[in-house]
Each structure stands twice: as structure tokens, then as C-alpha cells.
Amino acid sequence: MLSQQDTKNLIDKVVSYSKLPGCEVSVSSEEHVFIRFANNGITTSGYVLEQRVSITSTTDDGRRGSSVANELTDSEIKQSVEEAEQLASISRPDPERVPALGPQHYPELHNYDAFTGMARGDAMIPRVKAIIDSARKNQLISAGFIERSALTVAVGNKAGLFGYHQLTDSSLSNTMRNAGGTSSGWASQTSVSLKDIDGESAGRISAEKCVRGSAGKRKLDPGKYTVILEPSGVSDLIGFLNFGFGARQAEQGLSFLSKQGGGTLLGEKLFPEFITLRTDPFDPKLPALPWAGGFGGGGALPNDKITWIENGW
């Protein structure tokens, strides 16, 4: 994994090779460890290192070109800078460009867990074993996936901006099925820390769901029903909802937040009072970054809490 100084040196090197007025750089290095299991046994697993440098060059009149590479040798970095600049020079001015950000004060996030960052198979296999044990105890068949990741990310540009962050993430999901294939149960857990991932709990919950489904299934006729969703189900729906919060889409009639006849629904009460939706990058269990969105659209602005919906408004 790259240290803060490694990424600073790398970004400085990219900027030093740059000849055009604008140069934005993103760097990442990642380490992933994962185990996949099915039919009550491990099937595939791996240990994977990845790294990437993304460079966007901009001319005085706003022409932009980007290159992404993962060879971090001097010659390859130089070639990537030249490539981005060449693309910028033959592109057309971007009328929606924004000025490069200067130095920023990024918030401090605490979402790196050292245990998770170093965990390997010996830390993960007992969690898988707990699920398989639960499957065998209940005469069920388990399939699932456990993964932990450690990431180093950095941003910088020719205007003096620099940001660096390290974070970890881990997840476990499992599906239990009965032998006849007539019922299944699913459970999932995610956290910045692998210590929070509990195979015994995931195995028990998914097995209970599967056994419950085996016993009491009946045909449900089409109609309107009250549905109670567990958190992971709500999470999936919110993921789709998030696509519609862009201001441009709402203003231009392309979103559920567009108002019929023109304008947006910003400031109107659209949801029940018990609905409040926030983004909170400071949650220590979530793998958030100190900046929002990288350099897309001139971004890398400091991340902060955002309230999208408050008491239904």
C-alpha cells in the first residue's frame, strides 16, 4: 500500500511532467482478500493487489483529455501525462468546465482498521466455517462471499491541492438453500472492520429464513400488501433513489424530482414525516472518502454531511 509520502511524490512527479496549464491527478492502491464458497465448501479465493493513476489535462481554453494507467514507472507516468495532454490538445473546449480547486482542508475520517487491513485467510476462514457449520446442522446448502479491502487514495493538482486517505472495508453475504431448492434465506453484513463481521450470526439468520420458508409457503395473489423490508432491502432501494438527486436532471425534466410544467420539487413535502435521508461520511463503519466525487466535474470538494430529505421534506 502506498504511504502519504509515496502518493505525494507520485502526484508531484505527474505534475512536473505536465506542460499544459491544468493537471488533475487521482491515485489509488488497493489490496483485496476474498473467499467464495458454495455447496458447503470453498470454491475460489484470492489475494489481489491493484494500483491506478488517473490524469486529466486541461488547456487554457478548456479542452480536456484523460488517461488512466496502472504502471507507475517513470516512463509510463510520463507517457500517460503526454497522452492526456495530446488528447486535450485535439479535443474541443468544454463549455461546462470549472476552475481548478486550490488547496482544500479535508475532514479527518476514521474508517481505517489495522486488523482488517492486514487480515488474510486465517481471519476469514473461521467466519466461513461458522456458516457452513450452520448449513450442515440444519441440513441446508450454503453459498456466499467474504471480502476485505484496504485502500489508499490520493488526489492532487497543479493548483496545489493535495489529499490523502486510507480506509478499509469488509463484507460477508450468504445464501442458504434447502435440498429441494424450494426455499432460501439470505443474510449480509458490511463494516469497515472485519471484527464486526460475524459468520455465526449470518449463518443463523440465513438458515432461520430458509427453514421458515420451507415450512410455511403459500401462493400470494396479486394485490396491494404492506411490506416490511429489512435494512439491506431498504439500502438497495435507496441506491436507486440516489440516481434522481442531481440538480441538472431535476431542472431539465429528467428526474422524479422534476416538477410537471417546469422547475423542481426542491422544498416540497414528498415523503411521510418519518422519512429523513442523510449522507454521513463521518460514520466510522462506512468506507467514505474525505472528498466527494474525485475530479469529475471539477470535484474533489471536501466531503460533508448532507440532508437530502428531512421529515418528509
Binding site: R52, S67, A69, S91, P95
Partner: peptide, 22 residues
């Protein structure tokens, strides 16, 4: 597509090259 808040059409180009080796 139109500029935000006006009917003026913005013509926004994009070009990216990606390489991955390992």
C-alpha cells in the same frame, strides 16, 4: 444538451484512454 437555466446548447466533449497491465 442545454446549459442549466437557459436554452443555450452546450457541446461537451469527453475523451479518455485507460490502460491496465498486470
Amino acid at each position: 444538451s442545454p446549459e442549466r437555466g437557459s436554452n443555450k446548447t452546450n457541446e461537451v466533449p469527453f475523451v479518455t484512454n485507460q490502460h491496465s497491465f498486470g
